[in-house]
Amino acid sequence: MRIAIAGGTGQAGAQAARIARERGHEVVVLARSAGVDLVGGTGAAAALEGADAVIDASGVRPGDDPAAFHEAVIGTVAGARPPHLVVLSIVGCDRAAEYPLYGGKFAQERAAETSGVPFTIARTTQFHEFAAQVLRMGARGPFRFSPRMRTNPVAVREVGARLVDLAEAAPAGRAPDLGGPQEESLVRMVRAYARASGAGRPVIPINLGGAFGRAQRDGSLLPGPEALKGVETFDEWLTRGC
């Protein structure tokens, strides 16, 4: 198969590209660094030509409006009329759409559903690397802050494999969600990552306000009982060297 991957240099997209190549597929990376701008459309038509499936694992750029960004990417991809579009989304994005990142993913899903292109939506939970992101984002002087959140982190390489599995299969609409093997506390994850990375500074729990903060704490962002479960735990990921 010829598989085009939007965001093929990002975390999940790079894993999908590696796995697809290992399985013998021809991979086309759709990224600005490869001369393809899926928002403006530059280079997209040539890159998408002949693709049997397109995986949209694209990520927003700093300063972008997430909803507008994802809608533009879907519009560009749909214009090439690929036989199958696989969209990487987030578990619970519809229940926390007030938060721009989650709202952007929900807008991306709706754009795929109305694109006229056969599609599969693949929702996953946050990756293990989320702990490192929160540690960086929560830095304030000598302290680190982490939101209280119930989460079910999954290994990004397992997400990459899932995306390729779905690209190889027929369009499925909304596919079963994918989560990690067990529920975790985000605060514990961030503290464990801080120790493992040598950050050595206190991590202070906080409650975010609004509907998004409540969704973080009440389990709304956890996968349901019908979701697929990954294999690697967060602690195993830490032991492996992050």
Rank of each mutant, 00 (worst) to 15 (best):
A170R: 15
L48I: 01
M1N: 10
L186C: 01
A199Y: 01
A111W: 01
A170N: 04
A111K: 07
A96T: 13
V54N: 07
Y193G: 02
W237H: 07
D56A: 09
E236V: 08
R2W: 04
S58Y: 11
E26Q: 10
D37G: 01
A192D: 09
E109F: 04
G8M: 10
A122C: 15
S115L: 00
I5Q: 09
L30P: 14
P205I: 00
A111C: 01
A227C: 10
Q15A: 15
L178Y: 02
E113G: 12
R188Q: 14
G180I: 01
D65S: 05
R144G: 09
D37V: 07
L163R: 02
P153A: 02
G180E: 04
A34W: 02
P223K: 04
F145E: 03
P118R: 11
A111H: 04
A68D: 07
A175C: 13
A31H: 12
V77I: 15
R140W: 05
M137P: 00
A211N: 11
D177H: 04
C93H: 06
L221W: 08
G7N: 06
A122L: 15
P66D: 06
V91E: 10
A68G: 06
G116I: 09
A215Q: 00
Q182F: 00
F69W: 01
V87H: 03
G138R: 00
F234Y: 14
G75P: 12
A34E: 15
A122H: 10
L238H: 05
A215T: 01
T120Q: 09
A97H: 08
T76Q: 12
Q15G: 02
P62I: 08
V77P: 02
E98L: 11
L178I: 02
V190D: 02
G198L: 04
D56I: 07
S33W: 00
V27R: 06
K229H: 10
R150E: 07
A31F: 10
H70R: 03
H25K: 07
R95W: 00
L178D: 04
G7Y: 08
L135F: 03
D52P: 04
H128G: 09
A211I: 08
F143P: 00
R95K: 14
L228G: 13
A12F: 14
C93M: 08
G10P: 07
N207K: 09
V164A: 11
A227D: 13
Y193K: 02
E98F: 05
A139E: 14
V73T: 15
Q133M: 10
A72Y: 03
P62D: 12
T233E: 11
E109L: 08
R123F: 06
S58I: 04
E168K: 12
A68P: 05
R240M: 05
A80H: 11
E232K: 15
H70G: 03
R217G: 00
K105N: 07
A170L: 08
Q15N: 13
V86Y: 02
Q182E: 15
V190A: 06
T125P: 06
A6P: 06
P202V: 13
G224V: 11
L135D: 03
V91N: 09
S185Y: 10
A12I: 11
G198W: 04
F145G: 01
K105V: 08
Q216D: 01
G141I: 14
A78N: 12
P153T: 06
L186F: 05
P205E: 00
E26C: 04
T125S: 11
R191L: 02
A46H: 05
G141W: 15
P83F: 12
I90P: 01
E71K: 13
G43E: 09
E22Q: 15
A53G: 13
A44N: 11
A12S: 13
P142I: 12
